[in-house]
Write a protein that binds this DNA or RNA. Structure first.
Lengths: 234, 234
DNA sequence: TTGCGGAACATGTATATACAAGTTGTAAAA
DNA sequence: TTTTACAACTTGTATATACATGTTCCGCAA
């Protein structure tokens, strides 16, 4: 593994474990250079990563202050699969595959997935149950060129795990959009909406390493259970 | 100005202006090094920034592909003032200052702004009108230690401009949280809610360069007009 | 006592060099 | 013709050096 990543992970782990008191300085770059027996540039790469992820704040002429991280509980920012999220949640979760089929792309899908008319597309509809309540409705569409086969088992477990480990796809980046919509009949039917008159919809286009678009997803959430946490720099 | 930032801005401008066709390769790092008469590391700093911001996708052994940017229309991600947003909007916008006063921090504010009991805090309530409709209700609280004075004029124009240019504050990062809530009486009174039974609330804690917390904000949006666009990397 | 200057330290930027590792096309070998 | 091997590209990582620039603190001079 690369040195700067190893150092980054080591420092991140120590910060999370409160190895240093919050709001105090990290050792200086020169000290870290000596501690890890490497060069200053390598340390700086690790520190810049830490700053980007909100662990530290670099102050010129002074040093790196450890930011008091109040554990981000639901980082929908970034690309994270539901299964990866679920392990952080205390509650019981369950995934119900309600639909799984290969369909021809209609006009709407064509524009969202950038495929030609009539091309084959996998459609997966899944309901996410948290603590016994049906909270999230995930509608995924995959370009069959990149995902030729999907099974009930894969969808019930983790599609992302299958794509990355078995199909060796390099998922790279996504464009996301969050809006609030009125529930569709499908939403009302599949979710426990409890009279709520809105759903929060996260629409994502997901791209591979080679910038090809392979997935379009709508994640539809009951509004009271939705929470998006973000870290932003000016 | 720093070389790598100059190069970054130059490349970003060219990409936005379609100087190179979308989905094609940028010149290689070595070519750019020659073009800008600098070192490869400096070029790499600029390219990494472009990748971070979603302009390009770096592919090892091949080069940097230009990502087809479909102009992100409403980047609430990052820290952006309403006035900065407004210049990108085509519609007419107006800001109405509905409240401006210095108050003692109550228990709730104490925890949100990390101030002591009874400390002075500026409270600003503003309504944002877009195309004649009252869409957004911004409630800002500033720690008086960092912001001793605020006037009607400043609030009607841009508080951020005042903080950064006149008070010389270095606004650095923010923690944000997006949730959906039921409208309060204040929401119903000040906004044109048109019968909507929810509001989208962005709660932000904003920090200075030296990691001190100086602002807490709730930005309350009418759900049909709310849209959050994000670029994420796995 | 007060204020100024500078040493010693911090991070930021720029450059050069070396090698590792992935991709592609070509020419030689089977 | 097909396969293999390699050269010539690409980006990724690691190191060393130099200087710029911001912060802190201590001691000396006024």
């Amino acid at each position: 593994m690369q040195k700067y990543l190893t150092i980054y992970h080591d420092l991140a782990k120590k910060i999370k474990a409160n190895y240093w008191p919050k709001s105090t300085m990290l050792p200086s770059e020169n000290e870290l250079t000596a501690m890890y027996e490497t060069s200053r540039e390598t340390i700086r790469k690790a520190l810049n990563l830490l700053a980007q992820e909100g662990f530290i704040q670099k102050v010129r002429g002074k040093g790196s202050v450890i930011i008091d991280v109040n554990k981000f509980d639901f980082p929908v920012s970034g690309i994270v699969s539901f299964k990866e999220l679920a392990v952080n949640l205390k509650q019981e979760t369950r995934t119900i595959v309600s639909e799984l089929e290969q369909v021809e792309a209609d006009k709407q899908l064509q524009s969202k997935l950038h495929v030609e008319k009539g091309e084959q597309v996998w459609k997966v509809v899944r309901v996410r149950e948290i603590s016994g309540e049906k909270i999230i409705l995930d509608k995924d569409y995959f370009n069959s060129v990149y995902v030729p086969e999907l099974t009930q088992e894969i969808c019930a477990d983790s599609i992302y795990h299958y794509l990355e480990n078995d199909l060796q796809l390099d998922i790279s980046f996504a464009r996301k959009e969050i809006v609030v919509e009125e529930p569709t009949d499908e939403d009302r039917e599949l979710l426990n909406l409890e009279g709520y008159s809105n759903v929060v919809v996260i629409k994502s286009r997901v791209y591979l390493d080679d910038t090809s678009l392979f997935q379009y997803t709508e994640s539809r959430h009951r509004p009271d259970k939705f929470r998006f946490v973000d870290f932003a720099r000016r």
